[in-house]
């Protein structure tokens, strides 16, 4: 089905606390389920704020849509306080989304709550059909491409969804800045190691979501691996979310681009 954003009123199925300040909200919408692509976001109306708040589609199961969010300010607080059967006004699906590469291996890189859109992406990546993967220069073999996610956060409280990725057949590698879980350090250190020590990465696509600093690091690392296709999902403060107000721009090599319409996903080469 062709994607066209609609304004919908949905009924909340559940709001669940996952960790201290991380919540999982779900609702039913057949339209979103059928039209959404990984990386798309929804613009949610919150009664306590003037502007809507953009949140990524975290997961789709039949016609249940999940949103995973961190409580930051007024808007996300009000969302966290929603109850079953409360109504929610949303516009979506919005944004361009990730280009899901059919054949190659994938490396997902999540920084903190940036993990949110990557689970929906992982769902799609896991479903890719068997295909010919050039395993060695000598010849190809038929197999499903391999998937791995590198997850990083400040501490273990911020690390969520490990099991969900494992269920989808993903290898999961974890880094925490304080060492409370997995490797002590940055998630980008894991990426650097991965690329240095195996040739897996050289045939992979990278998909990343997290803070801008993380993208800067990824860019530095990839200077030595120019052929790895890398997609980054950006954030910016938004007005309309629909491409009409020009509030949400970020600088790219070809001038300012709108995160809500040209993005949120940009190829690394468009930015750096």
């Amino acid at each position: 089905m062709k994607k066209e954003a609609k304004q919908l009123t949905v009924k909340i199925d559940q709001v669940k606390k996952v960790r201290n300040d991380i919540f999982l909200l779900s609702f039913r919408s057949a339209y979103i389920a059928q039209t959404a692509k990984p990386g798309n976001f929804l613009h949610l109306k919150v009664n306590t704020t003037i502007l809507r708040r953009p949140l990524s589609i975290h997961r789709v199961k039949d016609d249940l849509i999940y949103i995973l969010f961190k409580q930051r300010g007024r808007g996300t607080k009000a969302l966290a306080e929603k109850k079953k059967n409360d109504q929610l006004d949303l516009i979506g699906p919005l944004g361009n989304g990730f280009k899901v590469k059919r054949r190659e291996n994938s490396i997902l890189v999540a920084g903190g709550i940036g993990v949110a859109p990557l689970l929906f992406l992982a769902q799609k990546l896991a479903k890719r059909p068997m295909s010919k993967v050039p395993a060695s220069p000598a010849g190809g073999q038929r197999s499903t491409p391999d998937n791995i996610i590198l997850m990083g956060a400040k501490d273990k409280k911020e690390l969520v969804c490990e099991e969900e990725f494992k269920k989808l057949g993903f290898q999961v590698k974890i880094a925490s800045e304080d060492g409370s879980k997995g490797y002590k350090g940055f998630v980008t250190d894991l990426l650097k190691k991965r690329l240095r020590t195996s040739d897996f990465g050289l045939r992979a696509n990278i998909y990343a979501c997290g803070p801008k600093d993380m993208f800067d690091q990824i860019n530095k690392i990839l200077k030595n691996y120019k052929n790895i296709n890398t997609q980054l999902s950006f954030e910016q403060f938004m007005g309309c979310g629909l491409g009409v107000c020009s509030a949400c721009v970020i600088p790219t090599k070809t001038g300012y681009k709108k995160v809500c319409q040209d993005g949120p996903v940009f190829n690394l080469k468009e930015i750096y």
């Binding site: 910016q236 403060f237 107000c245 949400c248 970020i250 300012y256």
Partner: peptide, 11 residues
């Protein structure tokens, strides 16, 4: 016109 340096909106 390209417009101003982002961020461009604050509530």
């Amino acid at each position: 016109r390209e417009g101003n340096i982002p961020p461009r909106i604050y509530e």
